[in-house]
Design a protein around this nucleic acid. Structure first.
Lengths: 202, 202
DNA sequence: GTCTATATCCCGATAGAC
DNA sequence: GTCTATCGGGATATAGAC
C-alpha cells in the first residue's frame, strides 16, 4: 500500500497501475489515457509497466476486467431486496445505470475503450457473469417469452439509458443519474408487462 | 469532386476533409483518427486543414453534424410507411439500429467521439431534430404518458441496441444488424403497449 | 488557401544494467 | 522487477513564402 510514496515499488505495481488507470480515465476519459502518464503518477519509469502488461491496451483490458466484477456485484446487490421478479429486474436496471453514472471510469473502460474484445478472451469471460445476472433475475418470469430475449431487452434498455446519461442527455450531476436510473427502471417494468410481444413468432 | 487526384485542392477542402474523416473513422474507429492522416490521404499538407478547422476535434464535430442530418433523414424515411403510430415508432427504432450498423463511422462520430459536446453548440443544435423526429412520431399515441417520456424511452432502448450491436454483442455482419434492429423494434412495441407504466406519478 | 519547413511534445516500445 | 537511456514514430500547431 506504499502508493505515491517513493520511487521504488515494492508492492504490487500491477494493481497500482490499474488503480492509476482508473483515476486517469476518470479525469480525461479513455481517449486521453496513456501508459506513460500512469507511470509518471506512480513515480516509476515508463518502461516499468511492460513487466506486467504487454502493451497499453492490455492494461485497459485489465481495468475492464475489474469493471466487470464490480459491475456484477453492484447489479446483484442492487436487485436483491425486492420480492417479486419484475421489481427485482427493474432494480437491476436501476443499478446498471447508477453504476455507469457513479463509476464512470470503469464503465468507460468496459464499453467505450475502443478495444477489440475478440483479442481478450479473459475479458469475454469476465463479461459473461453480467449477462448471467440478468438471466437469473429473469428466469422467474419467462412465461410468455424466451428468457434470453427478455434479459437482452432489459439489458439493452438499461444500457441505452446508461450511455445516454454519460453523453449528457439527462443533464449533469447526481440528479441526472437518478433520473436516468428511474427511467430505466420504469421502462423495464413496461417491457416485462408486455414481454409476450418480444417473441411474435408464436 | 477532384478528390485524390492531384496535389492541389481547388475544390472544397473542407468537405473533402469531412469525407476523408468518415472513411478513416470507418476503418480504424474514432480513436485512431488523426488530422495528419486525413491530410495525407487527400495529398495536402498537414497544415492545410487549419485553414478550415481550429483543431482536430472541430473536424470530428463537423462529421458529427453531418451524421445528425443523415441520421434524421434515415429515421424519417424508415418510419414513414407504416400506417399506425405504434408501428411507425417501431420502424423508427429499427431504422435507428440499422443506421448504427451500416453507417458505423457516422454513428461513432456522433456518440463515441469522446467530444465534449458542450463546446460545440452547433452540434447540440444539429442533434435536436433527432429528438424531434421521435417526438413527432410519438405524439399520436401519448395517451397515458407524457410524450417526452415515451419518446425518450424508445430512443434509449434503440440506442442501447445500437451500441451493443457495435460492441459485438449481437455478433458480426449483416445478420447481426438485422437481429438487433428487429429486437429494438419489438421492444418498442412492448414499451408502447405498457406506456402507462412510464409515468407512475399519476 | 495551400505549401514548405519546423518546433514541440508525447507516446509506445526495446535494450541492457542493476 | 525496476531503472536508465534511447530509438522511432506520429501528432498538433505555428511561421512565413507563394
Amino acid at each position: 500500500m506504499a502508493r505515491k510514496r517513493g520511487r521504488y515499488h515494492h508492492g504490487d505495481l500491477r494493481e497500482a497501475l490499474i488503480d492509476a488507470a482508473v483515476e486517469l480515465i476518470g479525469e480525461r476519459g479513455v481517449r486521453g489515457f496513456s501508459l506513460a502518464e500512469a507511470s509518471r503518477r506512480l513515480g516509476v519509469a515508463t518502461s516499468a509497466p511492460y513487466a506486467h502488461f504487454a502493451d497499453r491496451d492490455e492494461l485497459v483490458a485489465a481495468v475492464a476486467v475489474r469493471a466487470c466484477r464490480r459491475f456484477r456485484a453492484q447489479l446483484v446487490r442492487g436487485s436483491s431486496e425486492p420480492r417479486n421478479p419484475a421489481d427485482r429486474l427493474a432494480a437491476m436496471a436501476r443499478a446498471y445505470v447508477r453504476f455507469a453514472g457513479t463509476q464512470r471510469a470503469l464503465f468507460e473502460a468496459l464499453f467505450s475503450s475502443g478495444l477489440d474484445k475478440r483479442r481478450y478472451p479473459e475479458l469475454k469471460a469476465a463479461e459473461q457473469p453480467i449477462d448471467d445476472a440478468f438471466q437469473e433475475c429473469v428466469s422467474a418470469l419467462s412465461n410468455g417469452t424466451s428468457p434470453e430475449e427478455l434479459a437482452d431487452a432489459v439489458e439493452a434498455a438499461a444500457h441505452g439509458h446508461a450511455t445516454l446519461l454519460l453523453d449528457g442527455s439527462f443533464g449533469e450531476g447526481y440528479r441526472a443519474v437518478e433520473l436516468a436510473a428511474e427511467r430505466a427502471a420504469r421502462v423495464t417494468l413496461a417491457i416485462v408487462e408486455s414481454r409476450r410481444l418480444l417473441t411474435p413468432g408464436r
